[in-house]
Computed example of a mutant assay.
Amino acid sequence: MEFEVNGARRTVDVDDDPAAVEVVRDRLGLTGTKLVCAGGVCGACTIQVDGEPRVSCLTPAARLAGRRVTTVEGLAAHPVARAFAGEDALQCGYCTPGFVVEAAAFFERWRAEHGPTRPGRE
């Protein structure tokens, strides 16, 4: 199976039917994606697939074929990631990568619709 991860084309042999989190974390070594609840509830495993957030514990790896995947590692220079780091926006830090991935997707959607206008608190 071939797909793009953080801007690089990757090929992964998928013989079984793993979840995307297994491929991203265990086979590609992108350990910012965490497997915690395995039920799609906590968000620690969130990745972006073609710019949309997806919980990778419930996403079959086969759905990544031919797609553009972004993990927290691919967002290191993103304004949201820089803001999280600059404001020490974490607790234990385990679920923080999922928050960054989800917030970056929101940021990009907002900018696409509203330009540089800042969102309100609500």
Score class of each variant (00 low, 15 high):
residue 36 V to F: 00
residue 100 V to I: 15
residue 41 V to R: 00
residue 16 D to W: 05
residue 26 D to M: 06
residue 52 E to G: 00
residue 33 T to W: 01
residue 6 N to A: 08
residue 17 D to I: 01
residue 58 L to V: 14
residue 97 P to Q: 06
residue 71 T to P: 12
residue 35 L to S: 06
residue 90 L to F: 15
residue 44 A to F: 01
residue 95 C to Y: 07
residue 39 G to Q: 12
residue 76 A to Y: 05
residue 55 V to H: 11
residue 10 R to V: 15
residue 118 R to H: 09
residue 89 A to R: 06
residue 37 C to I: 05
residue 49 V to C: 10
residue 79 P to C: 12
residue 48 Q to I: 02
residue 109 R to F: 12
residue 121 R to Q: 10
residue 100 V to R: 00
residue 61 A to G: 09
residue 16 D to N: 11
residue 20 A to L: 11
residue 58 L to M: 14
residue 98 G to R: 03
residue 98 G to Q: 04
residue 89 A to D: 11
residue 97 P to M: 06
residue 7 G to M: 10
residue 76 A to N: 03
residue 99 F to N: 03
residue 107 F to E: 12
residue 111 R to I: 04
residue 112 A to W: 05
residue 100 V to W: 01
residue 48 Q to T: 07
residue 106 F to L: 15
residue 48 Q to R: 15
residue 117 T to W: 01
residue 36 V to M: 11
residue 18 P to G: 08
residue 62 A to P: 02
residue 100 V to T: 12
residue 92 C to F: 09
residue 112 A to R: 14
residue 49 V to Y: 05
residue 13 D to I: 07
residue 38 A to K: 07
residue 117 T to P: 01
residue 46 T to P: 03
residue 19 A to S: 14
residue 45 C to L: 04
residue 30 L to T: 00
residue 115 G to L: 09
residue 87 E to K: 13
residue 90 L to I: 13
residue 61 A to K: 05
residue 8 A to F: 01
residue 79 P to R: 02
residue 119 P to R: 08
residue 72 V to T: 01
residue 10 R to A: 14
residue 54 R to L: 07
residue 67 R to H: 12
residue 39 G to A: 08
residue 46 T to V: 13
residue 13 D to F: 03
residue 44 A to P: 03
residue 61 A to R: 03
residue 23 V to R: 03
residue 33 T to Y: 02
residue 100 V to A: 08
residue 54 R to F: 13
residue 40 G to S: 02
